[in-house]
Amino acid sequence: MQRIDTAVTHGIWDGQLPVRISIDPTDAKTLASGAILHSHYTFMHRCSYLPLVTESVREVFVKSGVAFTGHDADIWYEYRGVPLKWHYPIGLLHDLLTSQYRGSSPLPWHIIIHFTNFPTDKLIRINAANIIDTPHDSFMSMIKEADYIRNGSIKKLMSLSKQDQTNLWQGLSSHDYDKFWNVNARLVTNDNTIPKYIPLRVYLLDQPVIQEPVAPVDDNLDCEYTLRDILGRMLPEIFPPSLDAPTTEGADNTRKSDASEAVAILHGIVIPIETPILWLSQNCSYPDNFLHIVICR
């Protein structure tokens, strides 16, 4: 029987990121000429999405003198020149874009808010008619994709009641752990059957996302794969696959020092590389049911 470790899932759910938000200097000049604009400091839930915080952030800037009368769908964010994908969880955006710090980046995370010039070539446009519809649809599509990866169909998700499906998004957007996890536990434990594959994406800065079928156990169901096994297969040049057990202490030390060059970050934490991938998937997936793992070299 697979059980959720609620100490872990609560910890991940409550994980927050201190963020400093400054207005883009060009926007400040055109929208708030004369006003002195300070940065806005706030906490964001790592598992949440930027469109879910935009309304409250916009209010702060408008109150401080930004003459913004447009739609929230026009607002976007940037970190060091990189527009932030609103359909990625906030924690993933931070871990990926600060991956050169190997999990100990300077905080608060300093990002820039833009009120104009939405970069349609780099970010998906949000439907202005309903600012929450687009993120909701995108989130549910990820949950469906995850279910398909685990089971080869989305029957498990579609067998949930309409209310249960609604509770996933409502639980996430209102930060209601019980509402979300009462439904999500059935998905991530796959009703106590071993999933065919694990919903997982691997990210390296400035490289295409890696996603491929990852089985959690070997064909005979007698060996659980670890994160090392998976990364060793996907990125053999970064994570040399484990060879036979080393026979001398010296050989062991050598391998440890090689492995220490690259680390896998999830929820801002360096994940022990021998963690079984199935346990990781059930307990440490983002709310969209994917493990979004950032590799820091």
């Binding site: 994908k85 599509s141 990820m142 469906k144 169909s153 989305i154 996302v209």
Partner: peptide, 9 residues
């Protein structure tokens, strides 16, 4: 089954 995001490869 599902609608991929435009940036999926």
């Amino acid at each position: 089954a599902f609608a991929p995001a435009p940036d999926e490869i």
